[in-house]
Simulated assay, not measured.
Amino acid sequence: MNRTEPDARVLARVADGDAGALAELYERYGRPLLAFLFGLAQDRGTAEEILQDTLLAVWRSAGTYQGRSSVSTWLFGVARRQAHNRLRGKPPPDTAEPSDRADPLPGPEELVVGGEWLTTTLARLPLAQREVVALHSLHDLTHHDIAEVLGIPVGTVKSRLHLARAKLRECLDG
C-alpha cells in the first residue's frame, strides 16, 4: 500500500475493482467520515452502518468520479447522501436513555467532538447547521468544499455557519 499515492489514483484503482484500494481509502478517510456521520445520525451504530453503505456506494460509483472536486469532498458528498437516504423520516435517537454497548474505549464521537456537552449542544442545531459545523470545524473543509458537498451556494454555507455559531454562543451563555 502506497500512502503517498494521490487519492484520485487510489479512487481510479477502486473503479477498476481493486478492493485493496478501497481499504486504503477507508484507512485514509474512515475516521473523519464516521465522525461526520455520527454528527448527522447522533448514534454510533447507525453512523457505522451508514459508513458501510458509503463504502459500498464508493465501490459501485468510483468510476463516476470526474475530478471536479477533491476526492475527500466527493467522499463526504457520498457519505452525506447515504446518511440522508438512511435517516429520511427517522426520528433522532433518544439520548436520555443510557447506551447498552459494552465498549469501554472512547468512540470517534468522544475523540472528535470532545465530550458529552458539545455532542448534546450540537444535537440541538438543525441538521443543515450541524452538517456545516461538522464539515467546517471538525473536518476543516473550506466554504467552497462544503458548498460542493452539500450542493448549496457558498453564501448559504456562510449563513448556516453564522446561525450555528450564534446558537452555540447562546448555549454557552445560558
Rank of each mutant, 00 (worst) to 15 (best):
Arg101Val: 00
Thr121Tyr: 07
Lys167Glu: 15
Leu87Met: 13
Ala128Trp: 03
Glu97Ala: 02
His139Ser: 06
Leu125Arg: 14
Trp117Ser: 11
Ala134Arg: 06
Pro104Cys: 12
Leu87Pro: 07
His136Ser: 12
Arg101Trp: 03
Arg160Ala: 09
Pro92Arg: 12
Glu170Trp: 14
Ala83Pro: 01
Leu125Ile: 15
Ala102Asp: 00
His162Arg: 02
Trp117His: 11
Thr95His: 06
Thr142Ser: 14
Gly114Thr: 00
Gly107Lys: 03
His84Gln: 09
Arg80Ser: 05
Pro108Ile: 04
Gln82Met: 15
Glu170Thr: 05
Thr120Met: 08
His143Met: 00
His84Lys: 09
Val149Thr: 01
Glu110Val: 04
Leu118Ser: 04
Pro91Lys: 04
Asn85Pro: 02
Leu135Glu: 08
Pro106Cys: 09
Gly151Arg: 14
Arg86Leu: 09
Ala134Ile: 05
Lys158Trp: 07
Val149Trp: 01
Val112Asp: 14
Asp94Trp: 07
Thr121Pro: 05
Arg80Pro: 00
Ala128Glu: 14
Glu109Met: 06
Gly114Phe: 01
Pro91Trp: 10
Val113Ile: 10
Ser99Tyr: 06
Ala134Gly: 08
Leu141Trp: 03
Ala166Ser: 06
Leu138Cys: 08
Val157Met: 10
Leu87Ser: 10
Lys90Ser: 02
Cys171Trp: 13
Leu111Ser: 11
Asp145Trp: 09
Ala166Lys: 06
His144Gly: 10
Leu141Ile: 01
Leu127Cys: 07
Gly174Asp: 13
His144Phe: 12
Asp173Phe: 12
Lys158Met: 13
Ser137Trp: 11
Pro153Glu: 04
Arg86Gly: 06
Val113Glu: 04
Thr119Ile: 12
Thr120Glu: 11
Val132Ser: 03
Leu135Thr: 02
Pro153Asn: 02
Thr156Cys: 11
His144Gln: 15
His162Gly: 00
Leu168Glu: 08
Glu97Thr: 00
Arg160Asp: 08
His139Phe: 09
Ser137Arg: 11
Leu163Ile: 06
Ala164Asp: 15
Asp94Pro: 04
Thr119Pro: 00
